[in-house]
Design a protein around this nucleic acid. Structure first.
Lengths: 332, 332
DNA sequence: CTGAAAGCGCTTACAG
DNA sequence: CTGAAAGCGCTTACAG
């Protein structure tokens, strides 16, 4: 058992022969006399002193901590986002508390509450279906929050994909291939990004006087079941637009499950690129989200808010997606 | 601007007409008179009071915070692990601070130091190549840490795959398919799990008097380059054992890059299952790690240590993998 | 550039 | 079961 207590500012101050305030100044990067500086550095190293963040947080009011709440980390889009958030936070001397809501508004409320207790300085949030800006604000109070991936309200900063346009472009691409009955595959239309994509898709169809086809189910198995039924029906869809990498996987699995020969698999275009997209046969075409820019933007807005920049007006950023046409959409 | 300060124990205490100690007891689940309990609950709700974790941490010595340090979250194995860690932590009222070391020992040292400053109560760590138990202990001092995925030393708790056996079994499976020149694909042998797999592989080969073939490079592009060379050489390998899902992807990409026809792609067996494994053609055979059990075990050991259970001896757990034979290994 | 004093919001013994 | 007092380790004004 290691019984040596960790050292404090006072220990360092005594060792150097200055006051604790001076040691504190040194660690906050405030000017300290040249000679003193070196001695504090030496003593701190020797005593293995590091400022205690819990004490700093209590006294200083800032925790140097960021919250990140996402649906789940096992979705590669969010995994990427989390990695980028962690990188950006690290650069700025911040640590990130990671929480997931599993698409459950109640769990999200609990996580928000946790973040409030821990007094995170700010929050990056991919809000759960059914949550509102007001409900969120209500839990975290004055904490700056910027939404990513899913727009919530003009009254809350957000950085998302230009969902409507991306879906419209994707749908038009499929239409140009000559498909007549393009179906959308998605989990829940309440999720704002899906709602926006749905509207973009409908708009593209309507200009050609075609009717939308919706295949929707909250979980993987149900969705696959519905899709299989659709695939086996007489006048089923002849192309698929998958609204997430989850949905794309569902489609591919359905093909597998029905043991469809390669030739009778429906052409398909998905949202979110994924590592194995080019390795699947045929290689999956996708609209790729600019996840690096989404996160960078979100983080920079967040730190403006944390810095208390009140002159910055509400930001509602929508970034264009990148169409990656491989072969699954019908391209050669 | 919300200028209403958040309320404190004192506010609640005053509202109820008891001392702050009593309010504190209520929130720590210590017996409080029946009637008082209800009034504290009511006042806390009304004042939106929640204990400030930074103050609790400073006074109580516990932060209710867990550190998780992994190589990166964009590897699906670690993404799963992180999700599970977050779930388990949540159940126990803990928040997790997520940090990544990007396979860089210096960055790991920095992250460990961060965790010390934030005074995490414990740490789950997938240690970077080249780090030692002693070096780690040296930074985090008395903080309990359990290693996952990569064994470090008998002197540090660890929960890993039974790497040697899994690699041996995998290699034997490939040998039974009749392959003569099985090559290993991996990033760095310094990574303990790879070292152990390498030994298991060698052992299987040696019993058949075959020579091992190593294709090793620290990054994706270099590895792919080496693999392509090997694939194009006269007496190149006739089967591949990929030591990580990264390596598996490298192999599939090399096949793609060389535009190898399906028939002349080398049979392959990978470590780590991944979402699209069954969707690739041919479906990828893998040894799946019991990631749920690895994390559950690690967390339960960690909380024993946090609880100060000194009678618990060092745990070095190795869990068996699960062979999933799809088609890429040569199985029909 | 530096120091002495106060206090952030809790929890911890100590009494009763 | 409850309260008064002290203190966790810092940083923040306030003086000088």
């Amino acid at each position: 058992m290691r019984m040596t207590k960790r050292s404090t500012v006072i220990d360092v101050a005594k060792a150097v022969g200055v006051s604790p305030s001076t040691v504190s100044r040194y660690f906050r990067g405030i000017t300290v006399a040249e000679g003193v500086r070196a001695r504090i550095a030496e003593a701190s190293a020797r005593l293995q002193y590091q400022p205690d963040e819990t004490a700093r947080a209590l006294r200083g009011g800032r925790t140097r901590t960021l919250g990140a709440i996402i649906p789940q980390v096992t979705n590669s889009f969010y995994a990427q986002a989390v990695q980028l958030i962690e990188d950006e936070a690290h650069k700025r001397g911040y640590a990130v508390i990671l929480l997931t809501h599993q698409e459950n508004a109640e769990q999200q409320a609990a996580q928000l509450s946790t973040l409030r207790r821990y007094r995170a300085d700010g929050l990056i949030l991919a809000p759960a279906a059914g949550s509102t800006a007001e409900g969120i604000r209500n839990v975290v109070h004055g904490m700056p929050v910027v939404a990513i991936d899913r727009f919530l309200s003009p009254a809350m900063d957000s950085v998302v994909l230009r969902n409507h346009d991306a879906a419209r472009t994707a749908t038009e691409h499929l239409l140009q291939h000559g498909y007549k009955r393009i179906a959308c595959l998605l989990s829940r239309r309440e999720i704002m990004s899906f709602e926006q994509r749905w509207n973009g898709y409908k708009e593209a169809l309507e200009s050609r006087r075609k009717a939308p086809i919706l295949i929707e189910a909250p979980n993987h198995d149900e969705l696959r079941y519905h899709l299989c039924s659709a695939l086996l029906s007489r006048k089923g869809p002849d192309a698929l637009l998958c609204f997430s990498n989850r949905a794309t996987r569902t489609a591919l699995q359905a093909y597998d499950e029905l043991a469809l020969p390669k030739t009778s698999r429906l052409p398909l275009l998905g949202f979110d690129d994924f590592e194995m997209a080019a390795m699947v046969d045929p290689a999956v075409s996708v609209v790729r989200q600019p996840v690096e820019n989404i996160v960078r933007h979100a983080i920079s807005i967040l730190f403006e808010r944390i810095a208390g920049n009140d002159s910055l007006e509400m930001q509602n950023v929508a970034l264009p997606g990148e169409m990656i046409y491989r072969h699954s959409c019908g391209c050669k």
